[in-house]
């Protein structure tokens, strides 16, 4: 069974974006250790799953970074562009991007099928609606929360769709010099 990992930037109060999607609170100046941590996280991943809203920004952005030799993140751009992607949508009819297919069926069925296929780990980065649905349906096996040193009071949550409390197990906690704390949790075994 493949593992579905989540990797998101988060505020101390549990939001992944401001009320209108603002990301101005995210610390862009990662230290080397954090960059290495993210590389390691991606090492075992061979599929990215995205909500449609995020995909429309994420895929073209990294495709342009991938072709820009001046960009210090070109290697990441290539990695994100070359890694196969599945975009979850109810509204798009065809995928207009490289290495991307659409999933239009029921979220739980589609993700369960993907997890049952052979392969390495699957990773999700967002957006808020898509990740909320994954969490609500308890499809995420490992949460990697990049907690930025900031509280914003209100914003886009990813846990608000839960119908009952979700118990987790802390696997790793790592504080980085840039002020971000990475929390790695896995779903606690059902009691």
């Amino acid at each position: 069974m493949r593992k579905l990992k989540l990797q998101v930037q988060m505020t101390v109060d549990g939001f992944i974006a401001g009320p209108n999607g603002q990301m101005d609170w995210v610390n862009p100046n990662w230290d080397d250790d954090l960059n290495q941590y993210v590389d390691d996280l991606m090492e075992t991943v061979d599929l990215i799953v995205l909500g449609r809203v995020l995909a429309q920004g994420f895929i073209p952005y990294w495709a342009s970074v991938a072709t820009d030799a001046e960009n210090p993140e070109q290697a990441s751009g290539k990695l994100f562009t070359e890694t196969p992607k599945i975009v979850f949508t109810k509204t798009l009819d065809s995928a207009e991007w490289q290495n991307a297919a659409l999933a239009k069926g029921d979220l739980v069925d589609e993700v369960t099928q993907l997890k049952a296929q052979d392969g390495q780990d699957i990773i999700a980065y967002g957006g808020a609606t898509f990740v909320s649905a994954l969490i609500k349906n308890r499809l995420v096996d490992e949460l990697n929360l990049f907690v930025n040193p900031v509280a914003i009071g209100s914003g886009m949550p990813i846990f608000a769709e839960l119908e009952s409390n979700l118990a987790l197990q802390l696997v790793e906690l790592k504080g980085f010099e840039c002020g971000i704390v990475v929390l790695k949790y896995k779903s606690a075994a059902p009691a």
């Binding site: 101390v12 109060d13 549990g14 609170w25 969490i135 040193p149 900031v150 509280a151 914003i152 009071g153 209100s154 846990f159 839960l162 119908e163 009952s164 409390n165 979700l166 118990a167 987790l168 197990q169 802390l170 504080g175 002020g179 971000i180 704390v181 949790y185 606690a188």
Partner: peptide, 24 residues
Amino acid sequence: PVILARGVSLFGGLEQTQQLTLLE
């Protein structure tokens, strides 16, 4: 290590972003 389905946020009264510095 628990996510509450329904709870009250400690920072819910903030009207503006509060920048913090990680000490530990």
